[in-house]
Every structure is written in C-alpha cells, then in structure tokens.
C-alpha cells in the first residue's frame, strides 16, 4: 500500500505526517521524494546507510562526424542544442535526457555520457526503512531521482509513506504517480485553502483517491475544514496546534516515539487512512 503525502506549499506538515505515520506502523517504508530539501532523515537518523549515485544521460557530440544537418537542434523541444560555426553546442542544464538527438543523428555523431545529479540513500530506523533522494544543488530536475526511489519500492507490498515535494509541479506528479492513496495536509488559513485547492485539483487529475489531514488546528474557525465540508472531501483527522508537538518536531524528534498521546493520534490517523484505502479498493474493483 503506497500512500503519498502532499500539500500545496512547504511547512504545512507533510514530513510531520509521513514520518509519524510511518513510525506508528508495525513495519513500513518511508520515502523522501522532496529531493531538493529532504529532511525526513533528520528525524529518523537512519543507520546502516547505503548510498547509490544517480546520473542522467547527456549528449556528447563527435564534431568530426557531424555534417551540420541540424536534425538534433531542430528536434530538441527544450532547445538544449545549438549549431554555431560548424560545431554543436550542448547545454547540459537545459537537456532533459530524452535521447532523441542520439536516435535522430543520421551520422551517429552523438553518443551519451553520464552526468551525476545526486544520490539515493537507504537506511534503517527501528521499524522503518528510510529511503532518501538527494539532488545536487544547482541541478534543474529531481525527477530522475524520484523515479529511482519509486522503482526501488515498486514490487513491495509493505505500507509505504511517500513524502512529496511541496506544490503541484512535475516532481510532485512523479511522486504520486504510483500511489494508491493521497493524503493532503492542510493549514487552517485562507492561504492554506488556496494551496489545498491546488493539490486537490492535481490528485483529481490523476484519479487518485484522497483525503485531508487538518494540521495546526485551533479551537476557532478553520477555513480548510469548511472547504472540505463544502466540497465533500474526506477529512481523515485533525492534528492540534500546540507548543509541545512543535517543540518535539523542531528538535528533530519523532512525536509518536516520544509521547503516548501522539502515538494515539497518529495510530488513529493511520487507521482512518487504511480504512479509506480498503474501501477505495473495494470501490475500484
């Protein structure tokens, strides 16, 4: 069972939710797809680390074999190639590694070279297998790393929590693609509603069953809750806004491993999610 945790902006509580849900399960896998700024490992402090470098393919041109036909330049939709003074120039950072130029070159003047863009790190934290994607600073796209992370767990039936990057861009779509269920984490503000609306549109586009966890709840009006009720979006549960939880989290501690009451809150949330996934599965078949 793969559960993606996402939100329209950073700081709503994606990592809080996914780290704690993964920790209350008997055994689970936690996958940090927020490759530009992965922080789940700061909570888990995983042991027995194994690292695997991730690279992408970038075209390399043998200028002597090039006859200047420009098939590669004309084909590239990302404009990663230029042909100037009888030489092909490759803009590595603009290239999306589609390999089209290599296939099209009639003179076989283009080959591919590996370019390292980051790594995938695996480790163990008590009952949780922790997978972290780390993109090198300055690299334009984390998609290849996310693809590798999800490939690694594709055959696994274990409960898996996918901690997504914020927003609703390509890297988020890549992260939720294989998910059985999406948890949307929302803040009780108008801005929070705007962001919730954005990610809900995204998960609907992917036909993903989804529900909302209302984070930072106070005893006052909650625009995010109103939005869910109005649009008939399943509310999975609420997490209170309190200093103790905030302090535990700020200190890099996993709340459910520290205090029984948070263990209860997140156990209930996990039960609610599991029920939803179960009923959705029934609905889907």
């Amino acid at each position: 069972m793969k559960i993606a945790v996402l939100s329209g902006k950073g700081g709503t509580g994606k990592t809080l939710v996914s780290v704690n849900l993964a920790s209350v399960a008997t055994t689970s896998i936690y996958v940090d797809c927020d490759v530009e700024e992965p922080n789940g490992h700061l909570f888990f402090k995983p042991q027995k680390l194994k690292k695997e470098a991730i690279s992408v393919k970038i075209p390399e041109v043998n200028q002597n074999q090039c006859n200047g036909c420009r098939a590669c330049v004309d084909f590239c939709k990302f404009n990663a190639l230029a042909y100037i003074k009888n030489n092909v120039i490759v803009f590595d950072e603009v290239c999306h590694s589609c390999g089209g130029c290599v296939l099209l070159c009639p003179n076989k003047a283009i080959t591919e070279k590996d370019q390292n863009i980051g790594l995938v790190q695996r480790g163990i934290s008590e009952n949780v297998q922790v997978l972290t994607g780390i993109l090198n600073t300055g690299e334009p796209s984390g998609v290849p790393i996310i693809r590798k992370l999800l490939q690694t767990i594709s055959g696994d039936n274990e409960l898996t929590l996918i901690d997504c990057p914020p927003g609703s861009a390509c890297i988020v779509m890549e992260s939720i693609k294989d998910a059985d269920y999406c948890i949307l984490v929302a803040e009780p503000t108008l801005f929070g509603v705007h962001n919730l609306n954005m990610v809900q549109n995204l998960v609907k586009l992917f036909y993903k069953p989804h529900g909302v966890i209302l984070n930072k709840c106070l005893d006052e009006a909650n625009p995010a809750e109103d939005f869910c009720l109005k649009n008939q979006i399943k509310i999975l549960g609420k997490i209170p806004f309190n200093t103790e939880l905030g302090a535990l989290n700020s200190n890099g501690l996993i709340a459910v491993r520290e205090k029984q009451k948070y263990h209860e809150i997140f156990s209930n949330l996990l039960a609610a999610v599991t029920r939803e996934v179960g009923s959705e599965t029934v609905i889907n078949t």
């Binding site: 404009n79 100037i84 803009f91 603009v94």
Partner: peptide, 18 residues
Amino acid sequence: SAIASQGGAGIKAAQKIA
C-alpha cells in the same frame, strides 16, 4: 519563434540571430 518555447528560448533565439 522561440517566444513559444517552454524553455531554452534564449538559445533558440540566439541561434536564429547567428
């Protein structure tokens, strides 16, 4: 024509000018 490009517009425009 580079104006409609999703990315790399500068490269394409510069190619055209060159």
